[in-house]
Amino acid sequence: MSLKVDRDSMAFTFKGGMLPMTVMELTSADPERIREQLAGKLSQSPAFFQHTPVVLNVEKLDEPHLALERICAVCRAHKLLPVAVRGGPDPVKQSAWALGLGWFPPQEASRPRALESVVGDGDVEMAEPLEPAEPAGEEAVTPDALPGTTAGGRIYRGTVRSGQQVTAPEGDLVVVGAVNAGAEVLAAGSVHVYGALRGRALAGIHGDAQAGIFCRELHAELLSVAGNYKRLEDIDPRLLGTTVQVRLSDDQLGITPLA
């Protein structure tokens, strides 16, 4: 028996990956109410609903039996693709599996909510809000918060240093300073860096394909818009050190000089 694995004969390899994921936090188990709210949101920002994969978070619900199948049907009818369920008691887990969905254990109580939390080792700096946070409620998605705009954005003044992460979970992120190697800046909208970008920049982390990355001096380790990424190695060396914008067109990440 040989332990040698012929690379050409392998059908697949397993790889770890961190993908941006929208979490739908349910506060009601009533499929009708979910349907009404989704219909309203669909008319406000149709760009968001393009078979977007979502994780249904049912931690806030206190019901042993959910009409999971109907909730999923409502989501699919509105071009949201439920891929997994997070939290809930054992019967919920069983019915998720029965529906071919994955199941994630509930979030640890100590961690903040998914879209506002920042992964990392704790020395995270949240930048100052660009404008007061919008009251959460029915009107969470206002016309101002359409893709590509700065509603709920953040401004960070100073150098983002190695090991630090700065996130704008709801809008654009503006960094007035450099982003150093080993640092990471993330935004639901666009990322603007008025300085050298040497670290990682991820725009459109919730899937906004209209988002872009703008920087004064490009040396980025990684550029990503809505999950499409380029590594430093993939970037045309002639663009390094120049002022550029990064946009997604035809699922390709394009880097163009900013005159």
């Binding site: 020395d123 240093r161 190695s162 090991g163 150093n180 080993g182």
Partner: peptide, 11 residues
């Protein structure tokens, strides 16, 4: 790079 990391911790 390590100094940069330390500066982040100092802050």
């Amino acid at each position: 790079r390590d100094s940069d990391r330390i500066l982040g911790l100092l802050a």
